[in-house]
């Protein structure tokens, strides 16, 4: 069980990510505006949007039931639990009892389950299609994620995300090629999980009216938007924690954790800058062709697996 200092770190990390999430999504908007050569809103615009939504009325369709009402709460709570278990500021998991790679993937599945179910519950046809797509993307991405992480875990000898990150940071993996290929495959899967173009399938704004979000409004919509922003930061943190752990704190010292925070901020800025450039220079992939894209991920993960097997 986690002791008090780990618990404090976990709570701080989760709250920090939650607080910073709208800033990150605001940053993405700034990059988009720059690439459109627009003036655009400032990076704080998403905070203002959330506040405004909080004061609006919550309107529900007549067929919506319990699932529709509780989904925003479950979504945010689940993502916060993941945020507590992932090694982001430190090399080790703040709460290792939920920081296992399998647990993390399945906690994301918990969020996905309710997110998609609320789409059907709303009774809207757009939300239903969005829900179906959300889960289909999960089917295409989860095996790639798992295989990539399992290869890294086999190299490190543990499925604990922190232990894998530490092994990679200290160079205690005997097959560097396999690690790099697994990292590429995982990065690809994480990019799809971000829900950005060209893989903006479930919430495709121009196509499906934001999918499962269609019927949400007011404070519920605010909580969901906030959670989705948190999810983007979180999956990036998940990637950096496992495959780019350089700079995070190996112990619980305050200086180390603060330095880890600084380094993480730098990583997030760089990664979201690159992501922003990609998402604004491509168009949406056709949904029916996404399996061809996900095969790329499967291929890379398999290649990493082969390299792991031969031990190169």
């Amino acid at each position: 069980m986690p002791d008090l200092s780990h618990l404090v770190l976990a709570v701080c990390q989760a709250l920090l990510l939650l607080a910073a999430a709208p800033l990150v999504s605001g940053f993405s908007r700034v990059i988009r505006a720059k690439m459109h050569t627009r003036h655009g809103p400032g990076p704080l615009q998403d905070y203002r949007d959330l506040l405004k939504l909080m004061n609006r009325q919550d309107v529900q369709p007549p067929s919506a039931g319990l699932v529709f009402r509780i989904m925003p709460v479950i979504l945010m709570a689940t993502l916060l639990v993941i945020a507590m278990g992932t090694p982001i500021l430190t090399r080790f998991c703040p709460i290792s009892a939920s920081g296992d790679l399998i647990t993390t993937i399945y906690l994301f599945a918990l969020a996905r389950f309710f997110f998609a179910l609320s789409g059907i519950d709303s009774g809207s046809s757009f939300a239903g299609i969005g829900a179906s797509r959300e889960l289909t993307m999960g089917v295409l991405v989860e095996p790639v994620m798992l295989l990539a992480l399992v290869i890294a875990a086999l190299l490190a000898g543990s499925t604990d995300l922190g232990t894998i990150g530490t092994a990679i940071a200290t160079g205690h993996v005997h097959s560097m090629t396999a690690t790099i290929l697994a990292a590429v495959a995982f990065a690809f899967a994480v990019y799809i999980e971000l829900g950005k173009l060209p893989y903006d399938m479930a919430e495709a704004e121009q196509e499906l009216q934001e999918g499962p979000l269609t019927e949400y409004s007011g404070p519920s919509l605010a909580i969901i938007k906030w959670s989705l922003a948190l999810k983007q930061v979180l999956v990036v943190g998940w990637f950096t924690g496992v495959f780019l752990p350089f700079g995070s704190s190996p112990d619980l010292s305050l200086v180390g954790v603060l330095f880890g925070l600084l380094v993480f901020v730098a990583k997030v800025v760089v990664i979201f800058f690159v992501v922003g450039i990609i998402e604004n220079s491509v168009s949406r992939a056709r949904f029916r062709f996404t399996p061809q894209h996900s095969w790329l991920g499967v291929g890379m993960a398999s290649l990493a697996f082969v390299f792991y097997l031969v031990g190169l």
Partner: peptide, 12 residues
């Protein structure tokens, strides 16, 4: 804070 409102048909 406004009360929740139910009964708005889903957008189609």
């Amino acid at each position: 804070r406004l009360q929740q409102r139910r009964g708005a048909a889903p957008w189609a």
